[in-house]
C-alpha cells in the first residue's frame, strides 16, 4: 500500500506545538486535508513543503465531535482552510483567528437559529439507482 512519505503522528494536545516547530525549522505550510475515515473518526493531514520540495506531513486522528485546536494563531494562512473544513465537515475549531461561523462557502441565511447546514462531505453517501 502506497502512503504519504515523511508522516509524523500527532495528537490533539501537541498539534499546535508540532506545527509551530515545523514552521520554526523552515517548512512552508501548504494545506490541511480533512478525511472522513469511518463512522467514528476524522483525520487531518497538515502538509508542509520546503524550498527543496521535500514534503513533511503531520497526521492527526481524532474522534468525531471533538473540538480541534486551531493553528491559525501560529499560522495566519491556515485560517481559510480551517474555515473551509468547518463548513464542509462540521468540525469546530478552538481559537480561529477569523471565524466565519459556517458561512464561508455555504449559506446559512435560510436556516433557523441554531440549525446547521448538512455537512456535505461528512454525511453524504451515494445510493445506487435501480435500473428499470
Amino acid at each position: 500500500m502506497i502512503v504519504l512519505e515523511n508522516v509524523t503522528e500527532v495528537s490533539l494536545d501537541n498539534v499546535r506545538e508540532e506545527v509551530a516547530a515545523a514552521i520554526e525549522q523552515g517548512w512552508r505550510f501548504v494545506t490541511i486535508t480533512a478525511v472522513d475515515l469511518n463512522e467514528n473518526e476524522f483525520e487531518f493531514i497538515y502538509h508542509f513543503h520546503n524550498p527543496e520540495f521535500e514534503i513533511k506531513n503531520l497526521r492527526l486522528t481524532f474522534p468525531k465531535g471533538t473540538v480541534v485546536p486551531s493553528v491559525s494563531g501560529v499560522l495566519f494562512c491556515a485560517l481559510l482552510v480551517e474555515n473551509e473544513i468547518k463548513d464542509l465537515f462540521h468540525i469546530d475549531f478552538e481559537g480561529l483567528a477569523l471565524d466565519y461561523n459556517g458561512t464561508f462557502y455555504t449559506n446559512v441565511d435560510e436556516l433557523e437559529e441554531g440549525e446547521r447546514m448538512i455537512a456535505p462531505f461528512a454525511t453524504f453517501t451515494t445510493v445506487q439507482k435501480n435500473k428499470d
Binding site: 501548504v30 494545506t31 478525511v35 472522513d36 502538509h47 495566519f76 494562512c77 485560517l79 481559510l80 451515494t126
Partner: peptide, 18 residues
Amino acid sequence: KNLPRVRIRTPTFANIPP
C-alpha cells in the same frame, strides 16, 4: 472504482492570505 477523497489545493487559495 470511486475515490473516497480527492483534495485539491489550488494556488489562488494559498495566495489570498498574502
